[in-house]
Amino acid sequence: MTKKILFKLALSLAAVVALVGLVMGIMSEEASKSVTAETGYTGQTASGLIAAIGESARQIGQDYNLYASVMIAQAILESNNGQSALSQSPYYNYFGIKGDYYGNSVTMPTWEDDGTGTTFEIDQAFRSYGTVSGSLYDYAALLSTDTYAGTWKSNTNSYADATAALTGLYATDTLYANKLNSIIETYGLTTYDQPLYTQDPYQSGVSSSEIGSGDYVWNVHRGAYTDSDTLAQDDAWSAYTSRNE
């Protein structure tokens, strides 16, 4: 075999090796993307989660005699701003509700409090919903049972009574009410405890059709309807000024 032929064979072999390496690299990159999409950080913030579920929570609260402020605060706390694995697709369990939902569940590790402030980790089966709305309405159905009568608007004077009733019952965390109250106050969530149309929509210069589209919410800070981003900014500024008074 001549040197020329050997040289051509060597080039061919190198090309095959390079091609295999390229294919393997692409496969590895795609696998990495798949893992990131399933378990990676969503980039969602508390304000983003509030904007996403706030109006649904407002309506559900009105329909089920519940505080929407408490509902949203629990979603923020239990799902870590919508970043927890349990709150991601395909489970959408924003409230850490255990058990199964029409036979659907997922087992995940969770931290519990023994009632004295000491925490420990165990594996638990949690409900899997498949949709965000399924999670919201199942939460409302759960809190509508007699077990949680202490959280109903008709049985309380404020959201603080409801969060106190949840402590030791819904969650074993002895500081559960304090955490929820802090979230509610920080983000001004009590505005969601009121019906959407509590004021003349034309007062803000926003037409009724625009308000009905869901793009605008009542901004208690301005006494008018604004978009959700403006409300979130006003909530943050209010919380900042309150802390520095």
Rank of each mutant, 00 (worst) to 15 (best):
K3C: 11
K4I: 10
L6T: 04
A10I: 14
A10P: 03
A15W: 05
V23M: 10
V23E: 07
M27P: 00
M27L: 03
M27E: 13
E30W: 06
A31I: 07
K33C: 01
S34A: 13
S34K: 12
S34N: 13
A37Y: 08
E38V: 11
G40E: 05
Y41D: 14
Q44N: 11
A46D: 06
A46F: 01
A51V: 03
A52L: 11
G54H: 02
E55T: 08
I60T: 10
G61P: 01
Q62R: 02
Q62H: 01
D63A: 07
N65L: 06
Y67N: 06
Y67K: 04
A73N: 05
Q74R: 04
L77M: 12
L77H: 02
E78H: 01
N80L: 08
L86R: 10
S87C: 09
S89M: 00
S89W: 08
P90F: 12
Y92G: 03
Y94M: 10
F95P: 03
G96R: 06
I97W: 05
K98N: 13
Y102S: 12
G103W: 07
S105P: 06
S105I: 08
T107C: 09
P109A: 10
T110H: 03
W111E: 15
E112H: 01
D113N: 11
D114T: 09
G115W: 04
G117R: 01
T119Y: 15
F120R: 14
F120K: 12
D123Y: 02
Q124N: 01
A125M: 08
A125H: 05
F126G: 02
F126P: 01
R127E: 07
R127N: 04
R127I: 02
S128H: 08
G130C: 09
T131F: 09
V132D: 05
S133Y: 05
L136D: 01
D138Q: 09
Y139M: 06
L142C: 01
L142A: 12
L142R: 08
L143F: 09
T145H: 00
Y148K: 03
A149S: 14
G150Y: 08
G150I: 03
W152Y: 08
K153M: 06
K153D: 07
A162H: 04
T163R: 05
A164E: 13
A164K: 05
L166G: 06
T167E: 14
G168W: 02
L169H: 05
T172Y: 00
D173W: 05
T174V: 15
T174A: 00
Y176R: 09
A177G: 04
N178M: 11
T186R: 15
G188H: 02
T190P: 09
T191R: 11
T191D: 15
T191W: 14
D193G: 10
D193R: 05
D193M: 07
Q194D: 15
Q194V: 00
L196R: 10
P201S: 10
Y202R: 09
S204E: 15
V206M: 04
S209L: 07
G214H: 11
D215P: 08
V217R: 07
V217L: 12
W218P: 07
W218C: 01
W218K: 13
V220R: 15
V220K: 15
T226D: 09
D227I: 00
S228Y: 10
L231Q: 06
L231K: 02
A232M: 15
D234G: 04
W237T: 13
T241C: 13
R243M: 09
